[in-house]
Simulated assay, not measured.
Amino acid sequence: MTRSSLPLSVEPASTDRGYRCSTGSRERGEPLTATASTVSRFLLMEEPGPWGPAVLNCYRVPDPVRQLAESWEREFGIRPLLIRRPGRSAPAPRRIFVVNAAHGWAQTTTVESLDDVASLDLSGIGSSAGVGLTPHVDPVLLVCTHGRHDACCAERGRPVAAELARRWPDLVWESSHLGGDRFAANLVTLPDGHYYGRMEPDSAVDVVERHLSGHLTPRFHRGRSIRPWVAQAAEAAVRERLGETRLDAVRTHVLRREASWAEVEVFVGESRYVEVVDVARADPALLTCTSPLPSAAPTYVVRDA
């Protein structure tokens, strides 16, 4: 499998409010492989919204919580997200999740208001034991619908979230920005950290059904967030070669990382594969709906060592 540079002409700056980055990405044939955000720790805070363009600048997040979340992000690598049930219901109390995807756990609590999040102690988020909240055993399915951040997320994400919620009402949440607006609709499964992109309502149902049965769907799989991008690329290449779709069948380890290439070990059962991942840049393109100028996204080409 390869994720190669795309022979594109440079797109103009986005001055047209009708421009949609997800349409541009599809028209360019931009690969989904190795595009999952590289984050393993999450704080999910239920807030029906509406949400501002950035979570930590949103006035609905109380100042003490915003300040703490900023420090948690710096110190512990926690990604703060706002979530809501499809339909923007406004229940009280609010649901809070803390997730460590590297260790595969999610813990939860409820608060009367987001002000109470400031009383949480998240210093243990890096441990396998968690932060002392109630263990949450069911998957958490996040669909980005953050329209104030990028129009594509709302336009493509809300129909997907609504369709999934009809099937799995207790598992599905709309989410603020997950990363990769141009791959909307985006779906993230927690606590395992798998990212899927270009979801449509029908395909999303199929993807979730397979995921809940223990298999990923390569066509829509962006990668697993606990792995760096070069490891996501190497894993995808080995999975494609072997036809391996089991969620937990593959482990990776980056042996060497240079600016333009990396060497990655990929383990499938007792078998070991060593892949070289060449890193380059695609031709510049508008990567969000509001991009003022084109940017060059990284590309990955995988070959045997």
Rank of each mutant, 00 (worst) to 15 (best):
V140S: 04
V140W: 01
V140E: 04
L141G: 00
L141F: 10
L142Y: 03
V143Y: 00
V143T: 05
C144Y: 02
C144F: 01
C144N: 04
C144V: 05
T145Y: 02
T145C: 06
T145M: 04
H146Q: 06
H146G: 01
H146M: 05
G147A: 14
G147S: 15
R148D: 10
R148T: 15
D150Y: 09
D150T: 14
D150G: 07
C152T: 02
C153D: 02
C153R: 00
A154C: 09
A154M: 12
A154T: 11
A154P: 04
E155Q: 14
E155T: 11
E155Y: 09
R156I: 05
R156G: 01
R156K: 15
G157A: 10
G157H: 04
R158Y: 10
R158N: 10
P159R: 02
P159V: 05
A161V: 13
A161E: 03
A161P: 00
A162P: 04
L164Y: 02
A165V: 06
A165S: 15
A165K: 08
A165P: 00
R166Q: 11
R166A: 11
R166E: 12
R166H: 08
R167W: 07
R167C: 13
R167Y: 13
W168C: 08
P169H: 10
D170K: 12
D170T: 14
D170R: 15
L171F: 13
L171S: 05
W173D: 00
E174G: 03
E174M: 08
E174P: 01
E174S: 09
E174Y: 07
S175M: 08
S175C: 14
S176V: 07
G179M: 08
G179I: 09
G179D: 12
D181Q: 13
D181C: 15
R182A: 11
R182T: 06
R182E: 09
F183N: 00
A185S: 15
A185G: 10
A185P: 02
N186Y: 05
N186W: 06
L187M: 14
L187K: 02
V188Y: 03
V188G: 01
V188R: 02
V188C: 06
V188S: 00
T189H: 14
T189Y: 03
P191R: 05
P191K: 08
P191C: 15
D192G: 09
G193Q: 03
G193I: 01
G193D: 03
H194F: 12
H194E: 08
Y195D: 04
Y195G: 05
Y195L: 10
Y196T: 01
Y196P: 00
Y196N: 02
G197K: 00
R198G: 01
R198L: 06
M199G: 05
M199V: 13
M199C: 14
E200D: 15
P201A: 14
P201I: 05
P201D: 11
D202L: 11
S203M: 11
S203R: 14
S203G: 08
S203W: 04
A204H: 01
V205K: 06
V205L: 12
V205Q: 07
D206F: 07
D206S: 09
D206Q: 11
V207D: 00
V207C: 07
V208D: 03
E209R: 14
E209K: 11
E209W: 08
R210P: 00
R210Q: 11
R210H: 12
R210E: 10
L212M: 09
G214Y: 10
G214D: 13
G214F: 12
H215A: 14
H215L: 12
L216Y: 05
L216M: 09
L216D: 03
